[in-house]
Design a protein around this nucleic acid. Structure first.
Lengths: 167, 167
DNA sequence: ACAAACTTTCAATAATTATTGAAAGTTCAG
DNA sequence: CTGAACTTTCAATAATTATTGAAAGTTTGT
């Protein structure tokens, strides 16, 4: 396998994984293209490389910037804009985990809390609803906290301790 | 908020979260309905409750069974089949993590390994591809291992240690 | 073996989501 | 200020994914 094939394989695989996890394909592909690029890329270059339209490229670049994992890079002497992604995988994971927590997990936790706090009218079905949503609430909150802590602190020590613990 | 409203809120929220994470809405809703039910439900009951067709119900129940989180329960004296989901959230998380790892993460890790193992031809772009996919490979493998270990063992002790570590 | 009771399958259709491309918007050099 | 170079927006369209419902399949009691 040489460069071109490996590159395509990587970009495609990443694109499909994204799709599977509710992330749009173009977005995942743009990010992965930038991730292995040696320099920031212009919109033209991204369009050409991935064979996607200008509009699609623009919108997905925006989303990636909203997620905090792609930035505009101004290249001196160039009029057009260039884009680069966070290159450090740890930082990348940190951003993504943080955002998914904020946008998706936290709101669900809030609802779980509400639902599990309804008044117990003494019926079996109400008791069950309270019990189960409470259990889910506890799990979600623990997982969310763990995720954020692991991913947030400068955490070489914590990662190491963790790995020692579970290996 | 009383029972009916809370129940609907829970089922809907769970359904949307599923969608967001690449899980089909009906599937997520069926699972959450079973999760708060005090007894196994028949297909008729599920269809009526969620207002979905027989075919849809049948297919999604099958998928839930493939994921190992829903089982058929034979109720004595009844001809029709009844369904129940795993009620313990820890077990539930265990099953889901295990399956997602097996189906989705492991295959990607394999590709990352392949791609990061191409021959270094000395060019900058090849070096970058190798370096970045290798970093991703390491991260993915560590995360996958952690996830599986955390979620697999009888792990009260490990969870406790973990929480102590990161709190 | 039959038929009632039930489940599964799958082609057709609907709903959702992604993508395009051209018009509108912005920026900036001269 | 003007217009070329570039980006964004968004209505139309395409692609994908979910859902339906009825026919085919299966199981079980008699």
């Amino acid at each position: 396998m040489e460069y071109q094939e490996a590159k395509e394989k990587f970009i495609n695989t990443w694109g499909s994984l994204g799709t599977l996890w509710g992330i749009n394909k173009a977005m995942a592909q743009i990010q992965s293209l930038l991730f292995i690029s040696t320099k920031p890329l212009s919109m033209e270059e991204i369009m050409a490389e991935l064979k996607i339209s200008r509009g699609n490229t623009s919108m997905n670049l925006r989303q990636l910037m909203d997620w905090g994992i792609v930035t505009k890079e101004l290249v001196p002497g160039e009029r057009k804009e260039f884009f680069a992604t966070e290159k450090d995988v740890q930082e990348l994971a940190r951003h993504i985990a943080k955002e998914r927590s904020r946008r998706e997990i936290k709101p669900v936790i809030k609802i779980l809390k509400e639902v599990s706090s309804i008044e117990d009218d003494g019926t079996a079905k109400t008791k069950e609803l309270i019990k189960q949503t409470k259990a889910l609430f506890d799990l979600a909150e623990t997982a969310d906290t763990m995720m954020n802590k692991i991913v947030n602190q400068e955490h070489n020590w914590i990662t190491k301790s963790l790995l020692k613990l579970i290996k």
